[in-house]
Amino acid sequence: MSETANLTARLTALANPTRFLALAGNLVPWIGGASALVLAVGLGMAFAAPEDYQQGITVRIMYIHVPFAWLAMFCYAVMAASALGTLVWRHPLADVSLKAAAPIGAVFTALALVTGSIWGKPMWGTWWVWDARLTSVLVLFLMYLGVIALTRALDDQSRAARAAAILTLVGFINIPIIKFSVDWWNTLHQPASVFRLDGPTIHPSFLWPLLISAAGFTLLFLTLHLMAMRAEIWRRRVSAMRRMSARAAEGKLAEGQAS
């Protein structure tokens, strides 16, 4: 078998929810454990790192604020990929993935906004400004709320899936706007200091704890996403079984009336 055919066969096998449930069930304890370990190391290093000469102790907020902001965008990218999976390949798990990811992304986005605000009060002298970065992340949070509402608004699952997928893809335009808002507009929020073409401008003593914390939070996101996907698959089974049993009961009632 060629390698492409092999990969396709493996992805098709994963499309079977029963197989996915078993695989995810085996993976969750391992990724969850790895996440706890990496977070302990990353945040331990963050508190051992020196204080910033200007920001003082408040620089410690960066080690959670920046990973939350990255994950807010990463989670939306996962949802956009899932939306393509629903619209193009009609993958049965794509909508499960999108619906399960939305509340997790909303929590990380809210935390990015809240931790940024708590840092802003002592450092900028204000909780909030309507600059392009803060406003575009607030729009991302509202997009998450819209997707959450839409995935739960329609009883017809396949229609809800298509509508949520289209909304998610339209909203994806906001992701590059968030990333480049600090370059395109004059913002109070600082420009990128890690992912830049000319390399990070942040000192290694701050960079390493930040990168390790970000890796730990990413593993945590993957753990929560797999757990939420398992719950969603079970929820769909429950509603399918309830429908079947209601239909069977109706059939019996009709038979009883006819005889």
């Binding site: 408040t58 410690r60 907020i61 959670i64 935390l111 931790t115 708590i118 840092w119 009060k121 002592p122």
Partner: peptide, 10 residues
């Protein structure tokens, strides 16, 4: 207090 609040809320 700001650092503690940020970590506790998260």
């Amino acid at each position: 207090a700001y650092v503690v609040a940020a970590y506790a809320i998260s």
